[in-house]
Computed example of a mutant assay.
Amino acid sequence: MKKSFKYVMLLGLTLGLVACGKAEESKKEEKPKEDKIIKVASQAPPMTDIVNVAKEEAKKDGWDVELVQVTDNIQYNEMLKNKEVDANFAQHKPYMMKFNQEKDANLVVIQPIYNAKVGYYSKDYKSVDEIPDKAKIAIPSDVSNEGRALAILNEQGLIKLKDGVGFNGTLKDIEKNPKQIEFLSVDLLNLAEAYNEKDVAMVYNYPAYIAKVSLTPDDAILLENTVDERFAISLVAREDNQDSEKIKALKKAMASKAVKEYIEKEHSKTAIPAF
């Protein structure tokens, strides 16, 4: 009986050790699942639409692009800075650089995607020549877009900016204002509402935002003539992840033939591919 008991105990111990050994081997063979989800913050059409087109392209290479839609021009950069998303698609380079400067961030442009057709809109006037003296004109309050808005007016001769300021001009850089225009600095997201104000003669805006009042660049009385590629709406990531496999895959999808054809077919009135 004693020998039999010892035999059973030894057999059980041996089997147990074998089982443990196999379990350990199994654990070693198990590889951690690769993270194939790419989170992209964006705000409004056509930007969000383009992300969804790129999503289908990324699927072909085994990646899942997750759109994180926000409601303002702050969250998408804050989320990227704080590593809550992998990239964003909602801005041009000058706006991004201003954020970097103000927030001590390290965001970088990965790929320009499209140039938005920006310009001025008026509910009361059909041409710039009709704009009266001392008229009120609404322009963006942020520095990067303010400069672009003023450059268009300078190009048309409505104002004269200091030589050499280009798209970096501010209200302080206006040397001549023959019509004595009164400028209203308005947050970019509120410019569409300013269009309907009774005492506002003209409003600068982007297609994505002026669409709120059912307008397109075809309705503008003044459009930007010179395209500055710095203002292309771009895919943005961080310095620490710009060379990652995720961002490489996302760049490929965002700059794909499918995205270019989508912009040309569905948004030809408002955007021009930048790649």
Rank of each mutant, 00 (worst) to 15 (best):
D240Y: 01
M1T: 13
N225G: 14
A208T: 06
Y114W: 11
D61C: 02
E25A: 15
W63D: 13
G119P: 09
D61A: 13
E224T: 04
K265H: 09
Y262H: 14
C20W: 13
V70E: 11
K28P: 00
K3V: 11
Y114I: 02
P46M: 01
P140H: 01
I233D: 11
K98I: 01
K60S: 04
L171A: 06
E66H: 08
D199A: 06
E193Y: 12
L235K: 12
D163V: 03
N88H: 14
G164C: 05
Y125M: 05
A44E: 04
P94W: 04
V70S: 09
D49I: 00
K252D: 14
E229R: 14
V8S: 10
D142T: 05
M9N: 01
D86W: 03
T71H: 11
K117P: 04
D64A: 03
K136M: 12
E155Y: 07
E24F: 12
L150C: 04
K212I: 03
S268M: 03
G16W: 10
F5I: 15
K172G: 11
V165S: 02
D228K: 05
I233R: 05
G119C: 06
D61G: 15
E146Q: 15
S4K: 14
K6M: 12
F183G: 10
L222R: 10
N115A: 09
E182N: 15
I263V: 14
K93I: 09
A90M: 12
F183K: 13
Q91V: 07
N225F: 00
D133W: 00
E56L: 11
D64N: 14
E29G: 00
D240N: 11
V108Y: 02
F275K: 10
K246V: 12
V236D: 10
I139M: 09
V259H: 10
A271Y: 01
K3H: 09
H267L: 07
K260E: 15
E130D: 14
D129V: 05
L215C: 07
R238M: 09
N241G: 02
N106S: 15
E56N: 08
N73H: 10
I181M: 10
S185H: 05
N52C: 03
